[in-house]
Structure formats: structure tokens, C-alpha cells
Amino acid sequence: MTDVTMTVNGKPVTRSVRGNTLMTEFLREELRLTGTHVGCDTSQCGACVIHVNGADVKACTMFAAEAEGAEVTTIEGMANADGSLNVIQQAFQDHHGLQCGFCTPGMVMTAAALLRDNPRPTEHEIRDYLEGNICRCTGYHNIVKAIMAASGQDVSAIAAE
């Protein structure tokens, strides 16, 4: 067991973990932050995307011990300070960018990373960036639309609301 200290959603946490404890297990089981989801075993689905020191990371691909000293943000840390949905979350709700909600945390975290680096992505750039996130419900239409809307683009010409 090793002690690991990190900041999660702005709060410092220290826990004793085994060397093979995955970040997903650490968040879900130790911290009870169950918004980070596990949808596959092969780092394909993206339901577990979190931000570590500002980078979007699949939490199933890193050990908790690797996050020593890191600034970690999960879906639970994404809302505005007053608890209201942030601009990306709000766009997902406004444009029906989620159905069952299971892939949604990963989608929001990935979208946030994209928009930070590319504030007005094209449809093609969004679809390309979502390569690592699988959604089985929405057919991606409204996810892509929501991300375009969150970046301030006019989506009214895109079919269907």
C-alpha cells in the first residue's frame, strides 16, 4: 500500500492505495465519485474520461498512484460554482445530447478538453475528437450539435431540434 495525495475537484485528498488500484476504482470506490463510469475493459469507450493536470485522460488507463500531486477534475467538479450546469452541460441538456446518461460524463469531459484547445471546432473536428468516446443511444447527432452550440456556433440550421 502506498499513500497518494492529490486534489480532486478542488479538494485535497490522501488515501492509502495498492499499486494496482486503477484511477477508476479509486474515484468510484474510495472517493465514491461514481459519475466516472466504466464501460469497457480496453480503454475504448471513454465513459471514464477525467482531467488530470488539465489533460483529458481515460481513468481506466492510469493507476491512482500515478496521480500523486495531480490536479484531478471529474464530472462532479464540472458544474458552475453555484451548482448550475456549466455551458457544456447546459448545451447537452438544451440539445438533447444524452439519453441513458452512461457515456455522458466522458462525453462532457472530452468536449471540455476539445473546446479548451479549439474554441470553435468544425463538425469534422468534433467527430474526430470524439473518436475515443462511444455512445450507443444518441447516434451522436445531438452530441455534436451540443458541442457546436457550447462553442457559441449557430446550430439552428442543423436538422431537427
Binding site: T34, I75, M78, G101
Partner: peptide
């Protein structure tokens, strides 16, 4: 009408309660 989905808020904030949770 197409009101926004009320279930979305919990799903968008990580507060959904799935069986594994």
C-alpha cells in the same frame, strides 16, 4: 412540446444512480 429533460441534470453532473453505483 419539447421541454428539456429533467433527468439530464443528474446525468450531466455525475449524480445518476446506476446499479454499480
Amino acid at each position: 412540446a419539447s421541454p428539456k429533460r429533467r433527468e439530464d441534470v443528474r446525468f450531466l453532473t455525475g449524480a445518476g444512480q446506476y446499479t454499480d453505483d
